Amino acid sequence: MALVYQKELNPQTSFAIWKIEETAEELLGKLQLSRSEKAFVERLNKGKRTLNWLGTRVLLRTMLDTPGYIDCPSDENGKPYLVNFPHHISLSHSFDYAACMLSTQHEVGIDMELIKPKIEVIAHKFMQTGELAQLHDSHYREQLYVCWCAKEAVYKLQGKKGVSFKDHIWIQPFTYNPLGGHTTVQLNGPYQQAVYRVYYERFGEFMLGYVIG
């Protein structure tokens, strides 16, 4: 497994990306898992899902830089959290890459997606008509991925089910910058109303979106 990108956002918050190159057995050799975690891994389909799950946990261990057991369950909404460390966390994976964001002070959210044409077909499922109308023709596909990653990052940060990308998370107008930038995201969900600045950047053929609460 190779660390391919790491970024410190402030003294308390950072994220990193790893390329998953090991087999599942090699990844398992780098981890300490509880009985329930081992059973969970056994229930996965032995393909990409297994590698992605193990990859995010190996990256988490690397970022925390500890030889001890890391207790990282998910709550009733599916949001991962750390029992024996003070950090807030967010995890993402896409194809052969795993991403992890940590903060000792703030809730965080991160999403990583491979840029593919199909997003243009499904854009209406996660974007309001007004949101789509404010996008420019140039870099249209990349803008859609900025919007998706931004909404996903905010969704992960707030951590509750029943929040709709289309109906509860809205992207304010922004000018896309191929070198990276930010957009303002308004959350009007059933549990929380807030405005967030979400940052985005290209990583090869992938788009990253990340937010600090």
Results as ranks from 00 to 15, higher is better:
H93P: 07
K30H: 13
N188C: 15
N177K: 01
A194E: 13
I89D: 13
G47K: 03
P178E: 15
P80E: 09
Y176S: 00
L132M: 15
I70D: 06
W18K: 11
R43K: 13
A194K: 10
E131W: 02
I119H: 02
E21G: 03
K116W: 08
F95E: 13
I89T: 03
H168K: 09
D111P: 06
F126W: 05
A2T: 12
A99F: 04
E113P: 07
P80C: 03
W18R: 10
Q32D: 13
Y5D: 08
N177D: 15
Y145K: 02
L114P: 05
K46V: 01
L208Q: 00
H88Q: 12
D167M: 06
K125E: 12
E76L: 01
V108L: 13
I115G: 09
A153C: 07
T50V: 00
L9K: 02
K125H: 05
V185L: 05
Q32N: 12
Y191G: 01
V146R: 02
N45L: 04
S138A: 08
W148S: 02
C149T: 14
P73Y: 07
E25L: 08
I17T: 04
F15L: 13
Y199T: 10
E22F: 05
R202I: 04
Q12I: 09
E42P: 01
E201A: 08
F174N: 11
R202D: 03
R49E: 15
L51W: 02
Y5C: 01
V121L: 14
H136T: 05
A123Q: 15
H182S: 15
G55F: 02
L135T: 00
I171E: 08
R49M: 04
E37F: 00
Y140R: 08
F85H: 14
S14Y: 15
T50M: 03
K156W: 07
A24P: 00
G162T: 13
Q134F: 01
P80H: 05
T50P: 09
F15P: 02
T175Q: 10
Q192L: 07
L144N: 05
L9E: 09
S164D: 05
L59P: 10
A153F: 03
L33E: 08
